[in-house]
Design a protein around this nucleic acid. Sequence first.
DNA 1: AGAGGCACTTACCCGGAAGTGAGTACCTCA
DNA 2: TGAGGTACTCACTTCCGGGTAAGTGCCTCT
Lengths: 124, 124
Amino acid sequence: MATTARRGPYFCGIDAAMDVVAGKWKPLILWELRHYGTRRFAELRRGLPGVSEKMLIQHLREMEEDGLVHREVYREVPPKVEYSLTEHGISLDAALTSLGEWGTDRMRRIGAEKVSVDVAGPVR
Amino acid sequence: MATTARRGPYFCGIDAAMDVVAGKWKPLILWELRHYGTRRFAELRRGLPGVSEKMLIQHLREMEEDGLVHREVYREVPPKVEYSLTEHGISLDAALTSLGEWGTDRMRRIGAEKVSVDVAGPVR
DNA sequence: AGAGGCACTTACCCGGAAGTGAGTACCTCA
DNA sequence: TGAGGTACTCACTTCCGGGTAAGTGCCTCT
């Protein structure tokens, strides 16, 4: 499969955690799911401006495999799939908050631009 | 140059922090420097089994550029360069501890192997 | 004299992560 | 009727992080 291991061996815990969040969109997916509780595929796609469908699916599948997200399929007429965080996903998100704060500080320090993630308008 | 931006724009703080620790050896370098306070190039090389000199230098240069490590050159007869963490490097390392704990938990959960970082033996 | 340590630099190559774009089966709404 | 939404899959390409290997200038040890 396209699923590349993510099973170590690792040097330390940070390694093991980084392996699981490595991927351009994974922290954002975590943030979205944490923020909204549960989201559908198309909602996530709209929430992550610039993500390709292929990448989004691939990341979601890997995160499901890693036990971070839960995937609930509703066999309805317009197909409906809901994604949410598992217990492990929630604790990972919590473990990331201090890193997030450090990053926010850094953005302020270097005066980095922030991508606007507003619900409405297309970016650029 | 080989230095690839690392200046955003970012979606959020986690992005900004991940950008700076992205790189196979950066968390380990952080750990080494944090643990020993100050380390020479060859000491780091020996401490990170499997790292190539090119990668080690490249990572150190980027981390210096990002204000995480301090590079002190002693113009002596056998050249001597000492690396240490800056204030920002120390705070980043601190922000990573909770993530490290999460990763350690995960390693226990999935029963991942741990690379032995003993001074002596070559690993496999 | 030659081996070896120190702190690098340079050139080249490879694999995998990520992007692009199209196709699918079914349904709803204007 | 056809445009668009839903949740995908598949094939192809590009890019770049990381590995390999060699060279450099200077010194010390045997």
